[in-house]
């Protein structure tokens, strides 16, 4: 099972500069563990004390996982995952 993961500029130091990486896992948590095995250090930038970090947003097929099942959100083949820092919106 392969999921495409978009990595923001700020975290590309962990992916050798790659914008998009592939990973696998039945849940977001498993996916992050899988990514960590190839991109050491990434997990700590996303998760703190078992929770998503305050200024990190992760979207599965464009939906914020905080409104799905958080780190337990299930993934299917060909889902797309986007990681973005939380920023101020237009106003």
């Amino acid at each position: 099972m392969a999921v495409e993961v978009r990595i923001p500029t700020i975290l590309r130091q962990y992916t050798g500069g790659a914008k998009v990486v592939e990973g696998g896992g039945d849940t977001l948590s498993a996916l992050i563990d899988d990514l960590e095995s190839r991109h050491e250090g990434l997990r700590d930038r996303l998760i703190e004390n078992g929770e998503l970090r305050r200024f990190v947003n992760i979207y599965v097929n464009d939906e914020d996982v905080r409104f799905l099942d958080g780190l337990k959100t299930s993934l299917s083949d060909a889902d797309s995952v986007t990681v973005l820092p939380a920023v101020a919106g237009g106003a």
Binding site: P8, T9, I10, F55, T82, P85, V87, G89, G90
Partner: peptide
Amino acid sequence: EPRYGELVYGLRNLDEGFV
């Protein structure tokens, strides 16, 4: 939530994020 280009998310570190 609007998703902008990379320039807008180019923080120096994640702790500069904003909610």
